[in-house]
């Protein structure tokens, strides 16, 4: 690559990898919603960072306090986030805590939204919130499947979209775009034989 003097790693992304989303701090003249104030009151070290971007409020929460914060946001009457509309992650491989796990919450009572974000390292355990919002079950399974985020305490942690015997986690930025490793690309016939042998073993 002309703009990158160092030789890239085997399957490293081509463009320079950013270190993380900017998470801009809210403008000074914008007061955060009331439930955030009561959240930081109830759980002192619950909020590591608050950010505001194009109308969305995001709080970054330490992994250790995730369950407390989630429980509070679900139960507190002024928050009442009863709908966990999405759980997802993003991968920033240059960061030591490479994963952002993002919980998009919505309250059907107050009609407001909040994004809760945690930062987790590769093998760091991320507690499952499916005890609080049962709907997070599959979403967390997908996050585990796609990113390899180590979701702990999940009632049914299996791969969801990929086959059970799949190697690797496809949504990671360092996952090879060409497919499952070099064997397929360099030696498709061997790869097919391997597959067939495995399938036959499965059938028996």
């Amino acid at each position: 690559m002309p703009d990158d003097p160092k030789a890239p790693e085997a399957h490293a992304p081509k463009a320079a990898v950013p270190a993380g989303p900017p998470d801009p701090a809210p403008p000074a003249d914008l007061a955060p919603p009331a439930f955030l104030a009561s959240l930081s009151e109830a759980i002192a070290d619950g909020i590591a960072q608050t950010s505001y971007f194009v109308g969305d409020w995001t709080v970054v929460v330490p992994v250790a306090r995730l369950l407390d914060v989630a429980r509070h946001l679900c139960d507190a009457p002024d928050a009442a986030f009863d709908l966990c509309s999405d759980v997802t992650a993003s991968d920033w491989p240059t960061r030591p805590q490479r994963f952002d796990v993002i919980y998009c919450l919505y309250s059907t009572r107050h009609r407001h939204r909040l994004r809760v974000k945690i930062r987790a390292a590769e093998h760091e355990g991320v507690p499952s919130v499916s005890g609080i919002w049962p709907g997070a079950n599959w979403l967390e399974r997908e996050v585990y499947d796609m990113f390899g985020v180590n979701v702990t305490g999940h009632p049914d942690r299996r791969r969801l979209l990929m086959p059970d015997d799949w190697q690797g986690h496809p949504q990671r930025k360092d996952y090879p775009l060409e497919g499952p490793g070099e064997l397929l690309m360099e030696n498709p016939i061997d790869w097919l034989k391997l597959r067939q042998a495995r399938d036959e073993a499965d059938i028996e």
Binding site: P21, P22, P24, F53, G55, D56, S90, C104, R113
Partner: peptide, 8 residues
């Protein structure tokens, strides 16, 4: 611009 958003 750099940033993230959710829209439904």
């Amino acid at each position: 611009p750099a940033g993230e958003t959710y829209h439904a």
